[in-house]
């Protein structure tokens, strides 16, 4: 029973740790499916986390924080769009620039406004997205196995966790069951086909990057308003890049994206769990090794087991009408 309890706790933190990855990966999915590669997920998430922390600290409202996070990351997504869609610039360069801008400006603004070394003030309960207890969670807690799964694993997460997992089927539905999704997938594969069908390539791609902005805003908010109680500098800690790896790993499909993020979340949770405790047979494992595992895994799996990840064909290529 003790092992089972440990497992539940491990899975519980897997869920918590995979949520920011999932939101960011889904964000990247919209943009990249439309043919705009986005290496700036990290930066948008960081800026979103800062905006959320700052706005929630000032207003005392988590919702105001979420709104501010979305606004700022939509703004950054539009900057990326302006550079790469309207001006046909290099999407990697633009994405990297956004990462730098976010990393630098969050610290400067944080220090200038709050004078806490780049942090935002600690949030009270009202400024955060607290845990939501599902109905009867307490009542069934003592039922063996199922009760524990329900009350520990499924219940007691913040609103953003539930939203993130609901966004998976929603994204699938948008992509494969709506007109917008059909066009979005088409423009990432062959923008000329979309153009000659009488649809504006630019407007379609702008809408896609706006979706990315909304979701990276949510991902950032989760970090500063749910997982933590405020913004800490560089708090995304490379999650934007892991999300990108998950996206490639999942071949740009929503449901596999969820599993990829859960896998990376699990590795993360496992790394934290075994920190300091020697593993049987292996002994002490350096933390750095465990932290590198998601990346190593991506390379190994992509190289051998998953097969070729074929990106959207027009990905990374600005659309120019040919003569």
């Amino acid at each position: 029973m003790d092992f089972f309890h440990t497992l539940i706790l491990l899975l519980d933190s897997t869920v918590r740790l995979s949520v920011p990855l999932l939101l960011a990966a889904l964000a990247g999915l919209y943009s990249e499916r439309s043919g705009v590669f986005d290496i700036g997920l990290e930066g948008k998430m960081l800026a979103g986390a800062f905006a959320a922390g700052a706005a929630a600290a000032v207003t005392g409202s988590a919702w105001a924080g979420l709104g501010a996070a979305m606004l700022i990351s939509i703004f950054l997504a539009l900057v990326h769009g302006f550079a790469s869609i309207t001006h046909r610039g290099n999407q990697i360069v633009s994405g990297v620039a956004i990462n730098f801008i976010a990393a630098g400006s969050t610290i400067i603004l944080g220090q200038a406004w709050f004078r806490q070394g780049g942090r935002t003030p600690s949030l009270s309960a009202g400024g955060r997205f607290g845990a939501i207890e599902l109905p009867f969670a307490d009542a069934v807690r003592d039922v063996p196995i199922l009760g524990e799964i329900y009350s520990e694993l499924l219940s007691g997460h913040s609103l953003l966790v539930y939203a993130a997992f609901l966004l998976v089927p929603f994204t699938w539905w948008v992509l494969f069951r709506t007109r917008f999704g059909l066009r979005l997938r088409a423009v990432g594969e062959n923008p000329a086909a979309v153009d000659t069908a009488g649809i504006s390539v630019s407007w379609l791609r702008y809408r896609a990057v706006i979706c990315t902005g909304i979701l990276t805003g949510m991902a950032g908010s989760y970090l500063s308003l749910a997982q933590n109680a405020g913004f800490v500098k560089d708090m995304t800690a490379g999650r934007g890049f892991i999300a990108l790896a998950a996206l490639i790993f999942a071949k740009w499909k929503p449901v596999p994206v969820m599993f990829a993020c859960l896998l990376f979340g699990f590795l993360d949770a496992f790394a934290i769990r075994v920190q300091g405790t020697p593993l049987p047979l292996i002994g002490q494992v350096p933390v750095q090794f465990m932290q590198a595992l998601p990346y190593v895994l991506t390379v190994v799996l992509l190289a051998g087991f998953i097969g070729k990840a074929i990106p959207p064909r027009a990905g990374g290529v600005p659309y120019v009408k040919e003569r």
């Binding site: 069951r177 709506t178 007109r179 059909l182 594969e189 062959n190 153009d195 000659t196 649809i199």
Partner: peptide, 26 residues
Amino acid sequence: HQHFMLVENFTVLENVILGAEGEALL
């Protein structure tokens, strides 16, 4: 067009309706 304006990994049907879908849901 000389170079076909088709989305290669879409079905025939999806290519035909692209841009002439009618409604927001497919």
